[in-house]
Design a protein around this nucleic acid. Structure first.
Lengths: 109, 109
DNA sequence: TGGACATATATCCCTTTGGACATTCGTCAA
DNA sequence: TTGACGAATGTCCAAAGGGATATATGTCCA
């Protein structure tokens, strides 16, 4: 997972992953959904693919990308390690810390 | 959360957060636990602090840092959104499974 | 007060990397 | 075949950011 966070650090790549949440997308599709140029999309997809976050399926002249979420799992688990800090009382640190949005996740799997 | 992933992209900062998992640590403490120079530790702690991921408590000439995990929550939730991709088969050539998912409506664009 | 200790900041350097642009490669259809 | 289309690659460039080093700030203690 060493550099999964590195991948996610780039907003453009996160955008791409978000656009892929509903399933396979072609490159042009992704260009439309994001506001990136086609070469940029291809470039970032290349990086995501080399890292195993995304897979490519070729259909004629279309290149269909989809998510391989398993590669994100270690990062997710790394983060969830800090979940125990989410509700800590923080006695001394007063209510200024309560600026954190109390929103709750809609559903949990 | 825009740049929380940006923060986590840096291994040195992740190291620091890992070293802070068990609670408050002084800067020297962190220098020992990581293999970073003191200025580097201070520099990264500064960044983490400015981003609200970490808080500082001063005790004499010691500066004690601790985690504010709430700030990591949005990133964690963003990632957990992809949890549904974790159990996908992918045993053989994954393209076949992706082309015919068991219960997902077929999409045409 | 001096000086050791703890931490922060300032500056320089250097690598990385994302975007723009141009071009190339591959595929479809008439 | 040709030409339109979809996508990938190559090159250049500028900005961002981390590390090393040196120095400054602040605090304790004798």
């Amino acid at each position: 997972m060493a550099d999964v966070f590195q991948l996610l650090a780039e907003p453009s790549r996160r955008q791409l992953l978000e656009a892929l949440r509903d399933g396979e997308r072609s490159v042009n599709d992704l260009v439309d959904r994001t506001r990136m140029s086609q070469p940029s999309v291809s470039k970032q997809l290349r990086i995501l693919r080399d890292s195993g976050v995304v897979t490519l399926r070729t259909a004629g002249r279309r290149h269909l990308y989809s998510i391989r979420g398993g590669s994100l799992r270690p990062a997710s688990e790394w983060l969830s390690y800090y979940a125990r800090f989410w509700q800590e009382g923080l006695s001394r640190m007063d209510e200024a810390l309560r600026r954190d949005p109390p929103s709750r996740p809609r559903r949990k799997r």
